[in-house]
């Protein structure tokens, strides 16, 4: 048996799904951000696996951009959490329910 690209891709899909599920069920924004990181990592794995299979470096280059985006997102997201927690003692997404119609 040989490890084909499909194996990596299935691993990536599983990781992506776990991230998506976590983002939807957890209420702590920090954990939600970590779930976003999981999803982005899953995509990275896909890119690298595709690049490997296609013999193309572009897959790896794409990972760089994802990395930058992930960093920028985390910075802004954590700043948001800090800003909100100044005002509120606890920060779970359920407390954030002023906005309902």
């Amino acid at each position: 048996m040989e490890i084909t690209a499909n194996w990596y891709l299935i691993l990536s899909a599983a990781l992506f799904s776990i991230g998506a599920i976590g983002l939807l069920i957890r209420r702590n924004p920090l954990v939600m951000f970590m779930c976003v990181e999981l999803m982005l990592n899953a995509v990275n794995l896909s890119f690298v696996a595709f690049g490997d299979r296609l013999g193309d470096i572009a897959g790896q280059v794409s990972v760089f951009f994802v990395l930058v985006v992930a960093a920028a997102e985390v910075v802004v997201g954590l700043a948001l959490v800090v800003a909100i927690s100044r005002r509120r003692a606890t920060t779970t997404a359920d407390d954030l329910s002023v906005l309902r119609g």
Binding site: L11, A14, L15, I18, G19, I21, G22, I25, R26, V31, M34, C35, L38
Partner: peptide
């Protein structure tokens, strides 16, 4: 990887 991922969302 998977144990880690499940751990992230379950901890």
């Amino acid at each position: 990887i998977l144990v880690g991922a499940v751990g992230v969302i379950a901890a």
